[in-house]
Each structure stands twice: as structure tokens, then as C-alpha cells.
């Protein structure tokens, strides 16, 4: 198979799963936690969790070796596909624009900037955890 078609297939598969997960959470959660909240809390949770996991995944893969073969496949399936499709930017932008349209300027700013800032922290935390897990795994490898 042509490598481009293989990459597109892996990302399609991961993106389908990621979107299904985001959609399922959106269907299950609004009745409880997110109901009545001034900002879409489900989207916030999805984006922060996805940012953390992508930081962890990419750091762990990078520390295991160069981006080729099985590692590249995993990055495309789980990173670009699953977590890329699970998280979303268009909903963040559109919900912020809707808040602005309703005159809730402070809430729009808090939602948009808060998500980006906390997302950066979550990513950084994921990278730190990914690096620590790798160090522990390689220490175990040397001792055993």
C-alpha cells in the first residue's frame, strides 16, 4: 500500500474513534455535570484530557526512538487520529463567539483564554509524566 494511503487510513480510523468518544461524552454528560454551567464544561474536560494524553504519548514515543515504523503508526493512529479527533478547536472558538454575541464578554474571555492556558499546562504535565515513565522503564531495563 502507498504510505500516504496507509497514513490517511490510520488517521481516519483514530479520528473516527476519537470523534465517537467525544460525541458519547457529550451525550452522556450534559444531563449531569455540565447542565446549567455558563461555559461548555464537557468540551473543557475533553480538550484538557486530550492535551495531557497527547503530551504524554508524543514524549514517550520520541524517547523510544526515531519516528518510523511502529512508532510512526502509533503516533498517526493515537496522536493525530484519536486524540486529534477527540479534542476540538472549532467548538472552543464558536462557543466563545456565541458567548460574545450574548454579551458575556468576561465569560468568553475566561473560557477561551482559560482553556488555552490550562491546555498548555496539561500538555506540559503530560510531557513531564511521559519523560518520567520512560526514565523508570529504562532504569528497570538496566537493572534487570
Amino acid at each position: 500500500m502507498h504510505p500516504n494511503w496507509r497514513s490517511l487510513g490510520l488517521v481516519f480510523l483514530g479520528g473516527t474513534l476519537g470523534t465517537a468518544l467525544r460525541e458519547a461524552l457529550g451525550l452522556l454528560l450534559p444531563a449531569g455535570l455540565a447542565a446549567g454551567a455558563p461555559v461548555p464544561l464537557t468540551t473543557v474536560g475533553i480538550n484538557l484530557l486530550g492535551a495531557l494524553l497527547l503530551g504524554l504519548l508524543l514524549e514517550a514515543l520520541m524517547r523510544r526512538g526515531r519516528d518510523a515504523g511502529g512508532r510512526r503508526d502509533l503516533r498517526l493512529l493515537l496522536g493525530t487520529g484519536l486524540l486529534g479527533g477527540f479534542t476540538t478547536y472549532s467548538a472552543l472558538a464558536t462557543d466563545s463567539a456565541l458567548l460574545l454575541r450574548d454579551g458575556a464578554i468576561g465569560m468568553a474571555l475566561a473560557y477561551a483564554l482559560g482553556t488555552v492556558l490550562l491546555g498548555g499546562l496539561a500538555t506540559w504535565l503530560g510531557i513531564v509524566v511521559g519523560a518520567a515513565l520512560h526514565r523508570r522503564a529504562s532504569a528497570r531495563g538496566e537493572n534487570g
Binding site: 492535551a51 486529534g84 491546555g119 496539561a122
Partner: peptide
């Protein structure tokens, strides 16, 4: 939702 992505944007910023 699948086309746009928050996690990659955040990772590239960090």
C-alpha cells in the same frame, strides 16, 4: 470537530 484539533495546537505551543 475532527478536522480541528486542540491537543496538537497546545503541544506545538509548548
Amino acid at each position: 470537530g475532527g478536522y480541528t484539533t486542540f491537543s496538537t495546537a497546545s503541544f506545538e505551543t509548548v
